[in-house]
């Protein structure tokens, strides 16, 4: 076994220093070391997208990254999405209103995939939305209401996007 490595990350705005095994996956680090269990693990081989988080603002699969690779980076997980205890992010609100989730296990991954997607393309077509989420698997919804939720969120978030 290799000796532990020092790791320093910012997650949802808070700094964390830990000493971890080099082989520890980032998804396990977030879930078990930092107790941020909103990031889910569905396949551990990078296909299902449930473990998607933001690293320096871009969507990455935390099951395909070692925790030590996140050293010095800024991470956002689903727990960091809503502004406050009561407020939901407009994307979260849209998912609720459009019934874009059922069991909710894949949902954090969809949300974190969609944050940079909508930032880069604030007015996506349905086709673009479907392409944007085609790397995330959902077994419950048939995707239809997720597409609807993204459309709804895009409409609502648009005014903020334009100066």
């Amino acid at each position: 076994m290799t000796s532990p490595v020092e790791l320093s990350v910012r997650v949802n705005g808070a700094s964390h220093q830990r000493s971890v095994e080099p082989r520890l996956l980032l998804s396990d680090f977030l879930r078990h070391e930092l107790n941020l269990t909103g990031t889910h693990v569905g396949c551990e081989h990078g296909v299902c997208g449930a473990c998607t988080i933001l690293m320096d603002g871009e969507a990455v699969r935390s099951c395909l990254i070692f925790a030590v690779q996140a050293d010095g980076h800024e991470l956002t997980t689903v727990e960091g999405l809503a502004a406050g205890d009561d407020a939901l992010h407009p994307l979260q609100t849209a998912f609720r209103e459009a019934h874009g989730l059922q069991c909710g296990f894949c949902t954090p991954g969809f949300l974190m995939t969609l944050i940079p997607f909508l930032r880069d393309n604030p007015t996506p077509s349905d086709r673009e939305i479907r392409e944007g989420i085609s790397g995330n698997l959902c077994r419950c919804t048939g995707y239809q209401n997720i597409v609807q939720a993204v459309r709804l969120a895009a409409e609502r978030m648009a005014p903020e996007a334009t100066p």
Binding site: H32, T37, G38, V41, L88, E97, L101, G104, T107, L111
Partner: peptide, 23 residues
């Protein structure tokens, strides 16, 4: 009525407890 779901808030904010979350 198509009432929005009571359980969604916890699921959407990462606060819903799944078995693997038990520590």
């Amino acid at each position: 009525q198509s009432v929005p779901r009571n359980e969604d808030r916890r699921l959407l904010t990462g606060q819903a407890l799944f078995v693997d979350d038990v520590q």
